[in-house]
């Protein structure tokens, strides 16, 4: 059993899309469950249980991660960005607009994670090549589109 000195719960403070949340969480809680169940930010999704699908992708302190392979306690003090924070009020981001214009989503379940990966890409590399776009989206599974329209959308948003 766990040694008594090390706690299984922790108070954490996480800033998500500009709002700071102070919560007590079990150490075992994954960041994705913290976002979805505790904070009601249900835009980030869960599509697998092995860290493969990327539907839960969020940006933590500027770095793209899969929030199912990070404990909520590990995000203590971090600044987290999720799909809910991409649009500025009613103004969709360029990527969000391009996803619509290029029919880059069907069921929309992978879309939040896909948008976060594409957002991270364009921040680091505003003019990616076709190969760089594919490489950047490798961690996000889409079962509806075959990705082709997603590539087009990211390319269009970059231009």
């Amino acid at each position: 059993m766990a040694t008594s000195a090390v706690p299984t719960e922790r108070a954490i403070s996480v800033t998500v899309n500009g709002t700071t949340y102070d919560r007590e969480v079990e150490a075992r809680k994954l960041l994705i469950h913290f976002l979805r169940d505790d904070l009601d930010l249900t835009g980030s999704h869960i599509g697998c249980d092995t860290g493969n699908c990327g539907a839960c992708s969020v940006i933590v302190d500027g770095t793209l991660v899969k929030s199912c392979m990070l404990l909520a306690v590990q995000a203590d003090g971090a600044r987290v960005e999720t799909v809910e924070g991409l649009a500025a009020g009613d103004e969709l981001s360029k990527l969000q607009q391009a996803f619509t214009a290029h029919h880059a989503l069907q069921c929309g379940y992978c879309t939040p994670g896909m948008l976060m990966s594409a957002t991270a890409l364009l921040r680091a590399n505003p003019s990616p090549s076709d190969d760089e776009i594919r490489k950047a989206l490798q961690g996000n599974i889409c079962r509806c589109t075959g990705y082709w329209n997603i590539f087009e959308a990211v390319k269009a948003a970059a231009e």
Partner: peptide, 11 residues
């Protein structure tokens, strides 16, 4: 998806 209870230390 759901981990067993675990203690967490960040030395």
């Amino acid at each position: 998806m759901l981990l067993r209870e675990v203690a967490y230390a960040k030395p």
